[in-house]
Every structure is written in C-alpha cells, then in structure tokens.
C-alpha cells in the first residue's frame, strides 16, 4: 500500500508535480533531520546535511528503480552524506579550518524551542558523540530509528554479523557512559 502510494507520488513528481514531492518528503524529512542530528551532534551541521540529502533526492528521484524500498534508498543517501560530512569535518579540524565557534553561536538557532526538549537533546548529543562513528551509526539506526538488522544491512551494504557486533559494542559503551554520569 505504502509502496504503491510512493510509486504514484514519484510518478507525479517526475511528471512535474512539486506538490507530489512535498508530500513524499513530508514523511521522511523529520527522519532525515533526526538521523543527521544524532550523527552530527548539532543543528547547524544537521541542517546542512539534511539540505544536501533533500537536494540529492530531488535530483536523483528519476533514477530510483524500486529495487529497494524508498525508505532504504533515502536512509542510504542520508547515512552516506552524514559520514562524508563527518570526514570533511575531521579534515577541517585537522587543517584548523573547522569553525566550532560558529557552531556554538548558531546553537541558538536550534529548532527545539523549549528548555525541556533542548536539555533532552543535549544529553543525547553528549552520549552519542562519544561513540565511535561506526558504532554510533548502527546504534542510531537500531536503537532510535528502530530498524532491523536486515534493513540496516541493506542500507549500509554490510553483513548482519558485523552490525550486531558494532551494536553490542555501542550498547556496552553507552551503558558505561550512563553509569559514569
């Protein structure tokens, strides 16, 4: 049912309907942002990568052949772009080009307005940013986005065994971090 609806919306978008694209993205947009936010740890970077992902979807949707589900395809783009961004950030940091100050200043532009939710996010960012990237990615996809190992394996093109091992280590690290709080 969902697949049929998505297929219809893609066809309408390819036929020139911007509304169809808006409708299609409406469901995935918060998921994309949440994934980026959890991976990157702040609004500014998450916003940039979310924009990038939306642009890729907008431009590449014509090539989507339904070999996988649309969700898997979008997650694949999102995870790849997030990792690329993290690598770029690491390189910028190495070359002293990373503007951490700007990120901190722009944290006031966060899209979480109330204090309670902001405190929740800060706590989450604090824990997640201490996980190694591969573990963080699997942990985010499995623990927060509730995806099964099979689905994550399709997104990441990795073996289920390797993902399970990464998730186990992530769980271990997270519980240690929470114990030390």
């Amino acid at each position: 049912m969902k697949k049929e609806r998505e297929k219809r919306l893609i066809e309408e978008f390819l036929g020139g309907s911007e509304l169809a694209f808006n409708e299609l993205v409406h469901e995935y947009h918060p998921k994309i942002y949440s994934h980026c936010r959890r991976m990157l740890g702040n609004h500014m970077d998450a916003d940039e990568v979310t924009q990038e992902v939306l642009i890729v979807i907008y431009n590449k949707l014509k090539d989507f052949r339904f070999d996988s589900s649309l969700s898997t395809w979008i997650y694949r783009i999102t995870t790849t772009r997030s990792l690329n961004f993290l690598n770029k950030r690491k390189l910028k940091k190495f070359l002293f080009l990373d503007d951490e100050e700007a990120r901190e200043l722009n944290s006031s532009d966060d899209i979480v307005a109330d204090m309670e939710n902001r405190a929740k996010l800060e706590k989450l960012d604090e824990v997640l940013q201490q996980l190694p990237v591969k573990q963080r990615e699997v942990f985010v996809l499995r623990h927060f986005e509730q995806l099964g190992y099979e689905e994550i394996a399709k997104i990441k093109n990795k073996s289920v065994g390797g993902l399970k091992a990464n998730y186990f280590h992530a769980l271990k690290k997270v519980t240690e971090l929470m114990e030390n709080e």
């Binding site: 939710n117 929740k120 623990h143 927060f144």
Partner: peptide, 8 residues
C-alpha cells in the same frame, strides 16, 4: 536514553 530522543 531512547526517551530523550522523543524531542518535539
């Protein structure tokens, strides 16, 4: 921890 992700 999962509950902290339930941000509006």
């Amino acid at each position: 921890l999962k509950a902290t992700a339930d941000v509006k």
